[in-house]
Amino acid sequence: MSQPDFTDVDVAALRRAGEVVDSKACQDALRRLLLRMPAPRAWELARQQVASRWTLFERHQPGVEWPLRFIEAAKNPGVREQLEWPDDDDFAGPGANNFIRAVEYLWGASRILNDDEKRVTALVDAIANAIMSERLEDWGARHPSQWRRWYQDMMEGGWRVENQRMQREMVLGPEGMKVGRAAWLALADDMERAVRHREGTAS
């Protein structure tokens, strides 16, 4: 838990934004925090965020294991360079495609070697998509028939008013907001520990 005597402007900004689930403000604060960290530490924090949602993806896509290989291979340059991103990367399960985008951003970040700004932007996108995947998976698991109908309509190119209403409910309804708040605040706690550890190491 947070200590009352600890003040870090970026952690505080992340926590404030997380409380109201302001995803853009969360990402802005997270970007500043990751830029302050050594590249390997920033990448590992992002990898942990993505990997922690693997079971949510696997629940709806049993037997689809290649995303896990990309998560693990991203930290191994020899293995990483042997992989090619598959063409069949679209899945019907709730939150699955946000999770796939999170894996893709994480993998992409691992291949950006000499541009801190660009690499951290990819890491932030990976984490934001991982959190969104959890929010959508939670909603879709609670409302499977509605999710299937929404997904099918979207695959057929439909963007009806009902689809828009349902998407707002997934993300901005009380269920999605609760999951999002918990996820961003847990991340703020992780980032606080990382900042504390770095300051303790530096002192």
Score class of each variant (00 low, 15 high):
Asp5Ser: 15
Thr7Ile: 08
Asp8Ala: 05
Val9Ile: 13
Asp10Arg: 07
Asp22Gln: 14
Asp22Cys: 08
Cys26Arg: 02
Cys26Trp: 00
Gln27Leu: 13
Ala29Pro: 05
Arg32Cys: 15
Leu35Thr: 01
Met37Asp: 10
Pro38Glu: 14
Trp43Thr: 02
Trp43Lys: 02
Trp43Glu: 03
Glu44Val: 07
Leu45His: 03
Ala46Ser: 06
Ser52Val: 15
Arg53Phe: 03
Arg53Met: 14
Trp54Arg: 09
His60Pro: 08
Pro62Cys: 13
Gly63His: 12
Glu65Phe: 05
Trp66Asn: 09
Trp66Ser: 04
Pro67Ile: 08
Arg69Val: 14
Ala74Phe: 03
Lys75Arg: 15
Pro77Cys: 13
Gly78Tyr: 05
Gly78His: 07
Arg80Leu: 10
Pro86Leu: 08
Gly93Ile: 06
Ala96Gly: 03
Asn97Trp: 04
Arg101Tyr: 13
Arg101Trp: 15
Ala102Gly: 11
Glu104Thr: 00
Glu104Val: 00
Leu106Thr: 04
Ile112Met: 06
Ile112Leu: 11
Ile112Ser: 08
Glu117Gly: 10
Glu117Met: 07
Arg119Leu: 06
Ala122Gln: 14
Ala126Gly: 13
Met132Gln: 15
Glu134Ala: 12
Arg142Ile: 01
Pro144Tyr: 04
Gln146Glu: 14
Arg148Asp: 06
Arg148Lys: 05
Arg149Thr: 14
Glu156Met: 13
Trp159Lys: 10
Trp159Glu: 09
Trp159Asp: 11
Arg160His: 10
Arg160Ile: 02
Gln164Phe: 02
Met166Ser: 02
Met166Trp: 03
Val171Lys: 12
Val171Thr: 10
Leu172Val: 04
Gly173Leu: 01
Glu175Trp: 10
Met177Pro: 05
Arg181Gly: 05
Ala182Gln: 15
Ala182Gly: 12
Ala183Asp: 04
Leu187Asn: 08
Val195Gln: 12
Glu199Ala: 13
Glu199Asn: 09
Gly200Pro: 10
Thr201Val: 05
Ala202Trp: 08
Ala202His: 11
Ala202Cys: 08
